[in-house]
């Protein structure tokens, strides 16, 4: 243990500050007919997250700003937003990656879902699609005395799809979902993949039938926006294509 610890660097000296204009698409259903842009000048560190900047706006500039956030560490999936034209989690996006000093960042609500207020959208249709794919383990055989075992290879098969946090970044970046809300969407298909390719699950035919419906996997036109948007780096298009092939070969 060292005798003395170095004094903490003075924040103003040690860390470069930057000024950014935060342009937020505001909508108050009680006052506004249409959404409108509102710009807030903010001083922040380059290493701050966009969530910090939006919190700053809410806490010190305009307390009426409404948005969802919970854990702030990219695991609860609450703060998906359209930042600089792309869907991202505000808590996983660093300011320096989306803005230069003196620059502007734009923040909009995610698309394709009804805006309730400012950045807060109605997630219910999204979770309805999630429920539609039977997101629960089905196995009617009597449980073994210990765990139902999987080989490492079998676990790898569903490793990517079980990483999903249901933030809706993918579904609301999909051009098909924007115009056709009945499409289950990439997030639900990823969740379905997690059970279809689970070696312990027994409802695969049922699940594939859900995927085969006209709201299912065939609506995907491989625009890749979901894969680009996923904050968990899930190869979503690859997963959807795997489900498509599973549906097709099941029928063959």
């Amino acid at each position: 243990m060292p005798e003395t610890y170095p004094a903490p660097a003075n924040a103003a000296e040690g860390v470069a500050m930057m000024r950014v204009n935060v342009k937020i698409l505001r909508f108050d259903p009680e006052k506004d007919r249409k959404a409108h842009w509102e710009t807030y000048p903010v001083e922040a560190q380059a290493g701050d997250r966009v969530l910090d900047v939006i919190n700053h706006v809410k806490w010190y500039l305009d307390p009426s700003l409404t948005f969802r956030r919970s854990c702030g560490h990219g695991i609860c999936g609450s703060d998906a937003m359209l930042i600089n034209g792309r869907n991202r989690l505000a808590c996983k996006t660093l300011l320096r990656d989306v803005a230069k000093d003196g620059g502007t960042i734009t923040v909009e609500p995610i698309r394709g879902l009804k805006v309730e207020k400012d950045l807060l959208v109605d997630m219910e249709p999204f979770f309805d699609s999630y429920r539609a794919i039977m997101p629960y383990f089905i196995n009617e055989s009597p449980p073994p005395p210990a765990e139902r075992l999987q080989s490492p290879e079998q676990a790898d098969r569903m490793a990517h799809s079980s990483n999903c946090i249901l933030c809706a970044c993918c579904t609301t970046s999909c051009p098909i979902f924007w115009v056709n809300g009945s499409y289950l969407g990439p997030a639900s298909i990823v969740q379905a993949h997690r059970f279809i390719f689970d070696s312990r699950d027994q409802a695969t035919p049922q699940r594939l039938n859900i995927m085969n419906q006209n709201t299912g996997v065939w609506r995907c036109r491989t625009a890749y926006n979901c894969t680009e948007a996923c904050p968990r780096d899930i190869p979503i298009t690859t997963i959807i294509e795997e489900v498509k092939r599973a549906v097709m070969y099941q029928q063959a």
Binding site: R86, S173, P175, R221, T222, A223, Y224, N225, E228, T237
Partner: peptide, 15 residues
């Protein structure tokens, strides 16, 4: 305009 990458424009042009 959503700032998608190649895949989005490939899809749009295909339509």
């Amino acid at each position: 305009m959503y700032r998608g990458r190649e895949g989005q424009w490939a899809f749009l042009l295909h339509r």
